[in-house]
Design a protein around this nucleic acid. Structure first.
Lengths: 137, 137
DNA sequence: TCTAATTCTACTAATTTTATAGAATTAATT
DNA sequence: AATTAATTCTATAAAATTAGTAGAATTAGA
């Protein structure tokens, strides 16, 4: 399941993607438009900025805007930024690999193989969903 | 991601599936064989029993055994029993549907549609992984 | 200099997860 | 009937994560 943070991030990106080119959106505007707690959204937008998905302009008349092309921002990207691994266990993850503490011999783990299959399928599906594709629906 | 509970449940089922037909496994035997904390495993086995995946025999020489055919127990089933919805948000779930509290008009939610696509793909993949298919690997 | 925005650091409250403890119950064997 | 060894049940606790808040610092346009 997605955390609220990831859901809010997606809703914020969706909001930004629907604005006119060159429009700068204030946090309060996004918060009200997408129904997200304002202070929580501040943190989320900062994280999106650090991830180079949005840009910001400081000071009066400042705010946020999409930095990356909305066709290239995928659900997988945002999931990884906020909720981490796509895989169902760290040992089956590409980007967040970690060994299971209860694992005796990883190469012989029956579970891991199955979970890597799931990861490949889920990843493919999640990479197919972009901010642009969501807006179009 | 799977919780430890779900991971342990899968490992326990895998252990049971690899025993001889008619063999009854004690909790301690499964715990040591699959490297799972014994007291935690007790609860998990009870949940699996309530879900009709395993059967139990009480008293001396009692223990647990697979009740359902290992070909019919899927990753999706076990995920739902312990971690709940397969979908990434409750509003996109088949079995755990719930409306988002921050949602204004669900039928117009851009995000929901995309997440239902992901759910269908992931579910299909997870239903393809059975305890039997994992053992074979 | 005033105003209104982002940015940063720290904190808190609630929830969920991961267990553990110990008594009650069950049933096979002696 | 007593003993033994297992499941079952209820309650609790500790740790981690999530969700959200507070408030000061910084930035920049008017």
């Amino acid at each position: 399941m997605l955390s609220h943070k990831t859901k809010y991030a997606l809703k914020a990106l969706l909001y930004l993607a629907q604005q006119d080119e060159n429009h700068i959106s204030r946090t309060i505007e996004i918060a009200e438009g997408a129904n997200i707690p304002k202070k929580f959204l501040e943190q989320i937008l900062l994280d999106l900025k650090r991830g180079h998905f949005v840009g910001s302009k400081q000071g009066k008349y400042g705010g946020y805007y999409l930095l990356k092309d909305k066709e290239t921002i995928t659900l997988a990207d945002i999931h990884r930024l906020f909720d981490g691994a796509i895989a169902l266990l760290p040992c089956a993850s590409l980007n967040f690999y970690e060994r299971c503490s209860d694992c005796v011999e990883e190469s012989e783990c029956h579970l891991r193989h199955g979970l890597m299959t799931i990861r490949d399928e889920t990843l493919k599906a999640m990479q197919g969903i972009t901010i642009a594709s969501l807006v179009k629906k």
